[in-house]
């Protein structure tokens, strides 16, 4: 809006009304160049978190999905299955309640809950503070369960090694192309609840095709967090990434 008279930026020009100019390139004020990325602040914190993880050999995974995809069920199962072989810690993001962190703590591993209040995503600054409280061990595995939302968390780097997108077959098979940013940003997609496929009209091939369309490099692992299908493949994927970390550390 024009601050001289309150007319809009692309309002019509009326004869006789010429006391100011709307062209963005003609004005009296001084100009300063900025060239700053708006997410730069978040990226700074993310870089700090990434340094924290790298220095301690921690594999950090950012779990993203819609609400109700079975993220927390998958996480409790994964933690239960892996905690005897690797030290695991969890950061839980939700708008309200500490229910999820309590579910994780019930498995016996440390968890910190972040409540974002009005916020729709976790940011790197919040995660940095959670890390101070959580103090994850060297060479451990850290899961960050983001707020259930397929839009905003795609834009906010937390310093993680990879984003893991979870899509359940009770959702639409076209979600990867409806929310392309998220599936583009993810390294792996877990297609969850496949034990329910016999009761649903969900076209798996179509869904995989859509995911590969927005991200030709995405790895897809069909799983059932309740029945256990595909979880070995998921654990192998995690082990592969942890081995990759070790190699980089040694080099």
């Amino acid at each position: 809006m024009c601050t001289d008279c309150g007319c809009g930026t692309d309002s019509v020009t009326i004869d006789g009304h010429r006391h100011h100019v709307h062209d963005p390139h003609i004005s009296d004020g001084r100009k300063v160049r900025i060239e700053v990325d708006i997410l730069a602040k978040n990226d700074e914190y993310a870089a700090r978190n990434r340094g924290f993880f790298a220095g301690r050999g921690i594999l950090a995974l950012n779990l993203v999905s819609s609400p109700g995809s079975g993220k927390t069920t998958l996480l409790t199962r994964t933690v239960d299955d892996l905690k005897s072989s690797v030290s695991v810690a969890v950061i839980e993001g939700d708008q309200q309640t500490a229910n999820d962190a309590e579910r994780i703590r019930a498995t016996g591993v440390p968890a910190v809950q972040i409540n974002t209040g009005k916020g729709c995503h976790l940011d790197a600054h919040m995660v940095g503070h959670a890390l101070e409280r959580l103090a994850p061990q060297t060479d451990s595995l850290l899961f960050i369960e983001n707020v259930g939302n397929l839009v905003c968390p795609a834009e906010f780097d937390l310093g993680e090694a990879a984003k893991v997108a979870i899509l359940s077959v009770t959702e639409g098979e076209d979600k990867p192309i409806k929310y392309p940013d998220m599936f583009h940003a993810a390294d792996v997609m877990l297609l969850n609840k496949i034990d329910l496929l016999p009761y649903l009209d969900f076209d798996v091939e179509k869904c995989l095709g859509y995911a590969l369309r927005v991200n030709p490099d995405i790895q897809i692992i069909p799983i059932s967090a309740t029945r256990g299908d595909g979880l070995d493949d998921w654990y192998r994927w995690i082990a592969g990434r942890r081995a990759g970390l070790k190699r980089t550390k040694e080099v």
Partner: peptide, 20 residues
């Protein structure tokens, strides 16, 4: 085809300010 790598158009940056 869908074998595309995005190379531009993902930015969101403040370019310039007009100030006093």
């Amino acid at each position: 085809g869908f074998q595309l790598q995005v190379t531009g158009g993902e930015e969101m940056r403040i370019k310039e300010l007009e100030v006093e």
